[in-house]
């Protein structure tokens, strides 16, 4: 290790692998590449990358399966998935499986690099006592969430987002604030990753018909209210 952060690039297309490897090296990353899902899983074990860039559609093992398997074995390596604009369903599945962010192909290398740097800065897990908002209990120490006594399974990034909203209950947080605090993005980001994750959180928190807790404040952002 020479101190350069290690990025694992997984894509079945050689042209994209080569271009990404070169471009990310020039951006100051150490880069390893894998041509498929199985190779990626092996390489994560061996190389312990700081962050992964993962293509969704691959012939041998899809990016979604790679995310699921990693998360199932407790591996929390941050993952940014690559998807085409019209692969919405695949993108949604990847994020729900536990990926942290997505970029749409073709993308701006500068923006991808900025996101990867942010994802590499592992935010320190907030410790402390469980936060209670109405019937919602968020426990940062054990990383568990209960709504009205019912446990709610969340991916890492969903948990971080909910925790941020819970700690700031009744305070409206803008998308930019959430991007910065939850994803570490202190730059303009194209896309709707906050909106997408708010959607997932709402669905999981309201799965048993409970009333809405995460409200949209139009033109401003989102707020958690009891």
């Amino acid at each position: 290790m020479n101190g350069e952060p290690l990025v694992l690039v997984v894509d079945d297309d050689e042209a994209i692998r080569t271009a990404l490897e070169r471009a990310l090296r020039l951006e100051g990353f150490a880069v390893r590449v894998a041509a498929g899902g199985h190779a990626a899983l092996e390489m994560v074990e061996r190389e312990r990358p700081g962050v992964m860039v993962l293509d969704v559609v691959m012939p041998d093992l899809s990016g979604i399966s790679v995310v699921s398997r990693l998360r199932a074995r407790g591996d929390e390596t941050p993952i940014c998935i690559l998807s085409a604009r019209d692969e919405v369903e695949d993108r949604v599945a990847g994020l729900e499986a536990g990926a942290d962010d997505y970029v749409v192909k073709p993308f701006d290398i500068g923006e991808l690099a900025a996101r990867l740097r942010a994802l590499l800065r592992r935010l320190p897990s907030a410790d402390g006592d469980p936060t209670r908002v109405g019937d919602l209990v968020v426990d940062p120490a054990r990383r568990t969430v209960h709504r009205a006594g019912r446990p709610v399974e969340l991916t890492r990034r969903e948990f971080d987002l909910l925790e941020e909203l819970a700690r700031n209950r009744n305070v409206v947080l803008s998308r930019d604030q959430l991007l910065e605090k939850v994803w570490g993005y202190d730059f303009a980001v194209d896309g709707n990753v906050v909106d997408v994750f708010v959607g997932y959180l709402r669905r999981k928190l309201e799965a048993e018909g409970e009333p809405r807790m995460i409200h949209t404040v139009r033109g401003v952002g989102f707020v958690l209210r009891p």
Binding site: R175, A188, D190, G191, D195, T216, R218, G219
Partner: peptide
């Protein structure tokens, strides 16, 4: 609309 307008403002 809110989400779309927010995204447009950022763009």
């Amino acid at each position: 609309l809110d989400s779309a307008v927010e995204a447009a403002r950022r763009r």
